[in-house]
């Protein structure tokens, strides 16, 4: 685990300021907001969030780690998300995932050392007609193939 970069406290204050002090029920919404600000949930932000909402740090950590949508580590510049829904599975998603693991050189769920890529799975985005589907930096690549992914990832590597 790499040391986490320091974060901009002003930005954090702005996010936390929107929540009532002591309102523990806002925890998950607050985690979403912190994450949209920093793209992940920095340790310091979690601890400050705990203080703001008046809940224990262990509860914040337990909750943040429970949900797949929250990231506790910094993420890559490019995010490749492979849909692993059933429709995509029967249309060959596992092979695409393995292919991306090889192309990018990281295992699913990981971020490359230089923070260029994050490779992850999503349970289903509900765009089953497009299966198998890979989302790269927010763009949906539907009915995709290993060759197509090689091309897209290759371009990102060069940038």
């Amino acid at each position: 685990m790499a040391a986490q970069p320091t974060i901009d406290t002003q930005r954090l204050d702005a996010v936390l300021g929107a929540f009532e002090p002591g309102d523990g029920s806002a925890l998950i919404e607050a985690l979403h907001d912190v994450q949209s600000e920093f793209k992940y949930l920095p340790e310091e932000a979690l601890d400050r969030l705990a203080d703001r909402l008046g809940v224990s740090k262990s509860r914040v950590y337990g909750v943040a780690s429970f949900y797949e949508g929250f990231h506790l580590e910094p993420r890559g510049e490019h995010i490749c998300t492979v849909c692993m829904g059933t429709a995509c599975h029967v249309r060959g998603a596992p092979r695409l995932l393995e292919h991306l693991e090889r192309e990018i050189g990281i295992a699913s769920g990981q971020t490359s050392e230089d923070l260029t890529f994050t490779l992850e799975e999503v349970a289903c985005v509900g765009a089953c007609a497009l299966g198998p589907l890979v989302i790269i930096d927010g763009k949906y690549h539907g009915n995709t193939t290993t060759s197509h992914l090689t091309k897209v990832v290759g371009k990102l590597k060069k940038d």
Binding site: M84, G85, T86, A87, H89, A123, C124, G126, A127
Partner: peptide
């Protein structure tokens, strides 16, 4: 919450 992978009725 529609967590069922392969379903998107509720979303739609």
């Amino acid at each position: 919450d529609e967590g069922d992978p392969g379903a998107f009725m509720d979303r739609s």
